[in-house]
Simulated scan of single mutants.
Amino acid sequence: MAFRRRAKSHPLFSQEFLIHNHADIGFCLVLCVLISLMFEVTAKTAFLFILPQYNVSVPTADGEIVLYHYGLKDLVTILFYIFIAIILHAVVQEYALDKINRRLHLSKIKHSKFNESGQLVAFHLASMVWCLYVVITEGYLSNPKSLWENYPHARLPFQVKFFYLCQLSYWLHALPELYFQKVRKEEIPRQLQYIGLYLVHIAGAYLLNLTRLGLILLLLQYVAEFLFHMARLFYFTDENNEKLFNAWAVVFVITRLFTLTLSVLVVGFGLARVENQAFDPEKGNFNTLLFRMCVLLLLCFSQAWMMWRFIHFQLRRWREYWNEQSARKRAVAAAHGKQQLKTIKRESGYHENGVVKAENGTSPRTKKLKSP
């Protein structure tokens, strides 16, 4: 299964071979795990890679439900879905983005940014729909008190745990993709900050049993990010398409306000009123004053940093816009001045072969009468 058309072959196990064939290598590893499900000897080990672990049966009025908690075996599952993310990344790149790029004929810098936004649009759209489905089916939107009631939420439904494992897998897969996609050195620090923020917040919500709050905040964040990268895609196709940036700016500011408000409501007020406020890592309870202060400081710092980046981005856009407008006005004024100068010259006469002539072609000099 070849994801890319290669003009020439590279030496086996060389750097170029790994870069051009990383998706095929990942596909072979995934295929080996799937084949091992067919044999009884290897099936138990294969299930560690595919299915979430640490399931617990909890009796209810209607019977029993299966809930999950986290542990070290989750790292094995995350590793498997990292390879899945690498394969999907290559599929989107090969069958969608590369075909569009051939038609647009973008520069190298715009080509790189177009690929980045194209990948993130696909991911944010899928995650946004999936997250919204989980939030609605679990009743977190219809009952906001469930975000802090009965904390710690150490036992998770299957779809909640699987969602978090896939989210961690995607953002971890983005780290080797910086190498596979040959990202420019100037872009690496920015993307590492971007990836690091997502990993810290998602892993923090997962490990500190704040998964319900994390789902709502991720949904808000993904809506804003989806609009931003869609705006960039439209801008690269036509530089006059900037209206979507204005819509993104409004949604971005509203998202920051909602994120801060919801975080203070849940962590600052909701968890502070929960009866069980003892530090107990074995039961997954971290509800102490220090814990709440650290979580709020981290969230406020990240939102302030993102808002500062947003203001800096908007100021740069406005500066470029006004510089462009002033340059156009100067060009129009210069062209108007040249037109006026030409008009004045034509009114007073113009030069032809070194002789000043009037507009009717006659010389403006008076003719001398010949003496009789």
Rank of each mutant, 00 (worst) to 15 (best):
H312C: 06
K243F: 12
V250L: 15
K342E: 13
L227Q: 13
Q339M: 11
H351D: 02
R346Q: 15
N276I: 00
E242C: 03
L227Y: 06
T259I: 02
H351W: 05
G349N: 09
N285M: 00
N246F: 10
V253Q: 04
F236I: 04
A358N: 15
E282S: 06
N360Y: 12
F286M: 03
F291P: 01
R330D: 14
Q314H: 07
L260H: 02
E239S: 10
T261N: 06
A358Q: 15
D280E: 05
F279H: 03
L244V: 06
D280M: 00
G349D: 07
R317C: 05
A249Q: 09
V264S: 06
H229Q: 03
R309D: 07
A249V: 06
R317E: 04
A335L: 09
A249G: 09
E242L: 07
M306W: 08
M293E: 10
D280V: 03
F310G: 01
L257M: 14
T288G: 12
L227R: 04
V355R: 03
R292A: 06
A231N: 04
R256C: 10
L296V: 06
F236Q: 03
A331Q: 11
R292D: 10
V266S: 07
W308N: 08
I344N: 12
R319N: 11
W322P: 01
N323D: 15
Q303N: 13
E352T: 02
I311R: 06
L244M: 14
L341W: 09
E324R: 11
F228G: 02
V264T: 08
N240A: 12
F236K: 00
V264I: 13
T261D: 03
A327K: 15
Q340H: 15
V332A: 13
L265S: 10
K345I: 12
L289M: 09
Q314L: 11
F252G: 00
V355C: 04
E239I: 02
N240D: 08
W305T: 05
R316L: 13
F252L: 01
A334M: 06
N323E: 13
F258L: 15
R316N: 07
T255R: 03
V250T: 11
A272I: 02
N285W: 00
F291S: 14
I254C: 10
N276A: 04
Y321M: 07
T261E: 05
A247D: 04
E359C: 14
L265D: 12
H312A: 10
L257H: 01
A272D: 15
N353Y: 07
T343Y: 09
S263L: 01
L315N: 11
A327P: 01
T343F: 06
Y350S: 07
